[in-house]
Write a protein that binds this DNA or RNA. Structure first.
Lengths: 321, 321
DNA sequence: TTGAAAGCGGTACCAC
DNA sequence: GTGGTACCGCTTTCAA
């Protein structure tokens, strides 16, 4: 590259980075740019960050959980906001790595910040990342992790809101759907626990209903529905709610007359069902705000880790409950 | 690190990589491992790949399109398979970058392979990537790109299958829903074109129906439905089909009696609708196969680029058509 | 205005 | 067995 333009490597660097501390003559700039174009020259990011001692890479382990449209939108916004702040967002496919082993793998890339969407990063993992140069570590999970900034997303609150709503509606024998799909228990367990908490101190009961996301599984559940003696069910989310509503209706069970039904996520499809689906609307944090938090912490890593409760839950009452 | 263990950098490298060409004494190995643990030492991936001249990184620009469960499963499998082959999968959030500019940004990372899910990579982009050291470039899009291996996913075929099915069912005045959500036209345009192709040479007509994914938009469309004089509609996918089915039914329009309705993607929700939704089932390639293609090409980059048609379309006839 | 050279953190060859 | 050292590609003083 330098040879082709007939200049030194240094000059190339100056020209391509528009280094303001150094003035390069127009003819030279042109020669460099032409040579770069001709060779299809692209700088080597690794070499650059090696020399610089830092990068602008924000690393985000890809969530191991199938994510819905809600999360996708949040993530898109986050990514876009970080790009605007001149960070490079990279999702790392750490399939098969767990705990501190995963943290080490991430640390090898020397990201300036790490955003961990799942649970599974411990205090030791945080320490490894920080020692390796990560200036910001942000977790998005059920609880705070020592040393990291945390966006606490307490899905128990979702269950609590659901339970409270059903009690309000006069229901006392509550079922709670727990998806059998592995990976979803990160969410389903806390939601179930939340319903349990909501009924504490009342005469209401909570029945756990394992359910696979398949028509037949739902039909089997519906077939034994009356024997369960439930008058309400929180169906984990809108999709499971739709699955169950169909099965119940096929079985001749009136919703909400005989059984109230409540979903979560407030998807469009809930409004298309008949009866219209009551649901727990979740409010995720704005991707923009997270991006700004990351940026702030990167600039001042000494800031004491903040913990924010970010999962807003609000029941949207329609016709199914 | 070397200092703490009281050995040279070289020795550290030998120990941590279990270099077989060199034998290190047990006591030394222990000292190195202890020092590493104590410091939380993690090797610097950039330095390593800089020295090695290559990496095992497979780069995948994050798709700009909201992806459904179908694609998510495919991608998970791909990622898992590549991990097993000892590649590191990284999704690059290239929001805001286009065409060759994006290709340059990817090339900076010096990935050993690049898998491009969207359209938008041109022959020049491919060349840039290859010159920068990418041994495999695979595109997944509507058409083959010069110089790259291609998994051609021709969504026209989806539309063609849909159109043919509706014609088979005796329909002649076909509507085709075209989502207004920007980004989706990558898929919706070819699907529409496919329907057009299917009716070519017949007396059937095709009417384009722009539609936003909102209840009100669907209601407005349904309100003027009879004036459109359509006897069938291909609703882009199952979710739009559900949206439209509800609106039509609310308007008192019988499905399939008055209007046949066809979705795509074969989601679970289609089976839950009444009437059960006919749909175009898409068969994506196995993530495993793509992983093996990538690996094969990485090992022998001289292989002449292969082009595979990978999008299988099959109409699943249920009750709505 | 430009070039020479050091050094980022590893790896691998060659001496000792 | 272990250490010295050159080198990967780039940035950044410092001199010329």
């Amino acid at each position: 590259m330098a040879r082709l333009a007939g200049v030194s490597r240094a000059t190339v660097s100056y020209v391509l980075n528009n280094t303001s501390a150094v003035r390069i003559s127009e003819p030279t700039r042109r020669r460099v740019h032409e040579a770069a174009k001709e060779l299809g020259y692209v700088p080597h990011a690794a070499a650059r960050s090696l020399r610089a001692g830092h990068s602008r890479m924000v690393l985000m382990p890809a969530p191991r959980v199938p994510v819905g449209p809600l999360y996708s939108r949040f993530f898109d916004e986050l990514q876009w906001s970080l790009s605007r702040l001149d960070y490079t967002v990279v999702q790392y496919g750490g399939v098969g790595l767990h705990g501190d082993e995963a943290a080490r793998a991430w640390a090898e890339l020397r990201p300036v910040a790490v955003i961990v969407p799942d649970e599974g990063l411990g205090p030791k993992g945080v320490a490894v990342l920080k020692r390796s140069g990560a200036r910001a570590v942000v977790t998005m999970g059920p609880e705070h992790v020592e040393g990291a900034h945390a966006l606490v997303m307490d899905h128990q609150e979702v269950g609590r809101a659901a339970g409270a709503h059903l009690l309000d509606r006069g229901r006392r024998r509550l079922g709670v759907v727990v998806p059998e799909a592995r990976g979803l228990d990160v969410f389903s367990r806390p939601r179930l626990a939340g319903v349990r908490r909501a009924v504490r101190g009342t005469d209401a009961t909570v029945t756990e209903l394992p359910l696979a996301y398949e028509e037949e599984a739902a039909a089997r559940l519906a077939a034994r529905w009356r024997s369960l003696g439930l008058d309400a069910v929180f169906a984990y989310n809108d999709e499971y709610a739709m699955l169950l509503m169909r099965a119940l209706q096929d079985e001749g069970i009136d919703v909400p007359g005989e059984t109230a039904l409540l979903g979560a996520d407030d998807l469009v499809l809930g409004r298309l069902l008949r009866p219209r689906l009551s649901t727990v609307h979740l409010r995720l944090p704005a991707g923009r705000d997270l991006a700004e938090l990351v940026d702030r912490v990167v600039r001042d890593p000494t800031a004491v880790p903040e913990t924010h409760e970010v999962l807003g839950s609000r029941v949207v009452h329609r016709e199914s409950s």
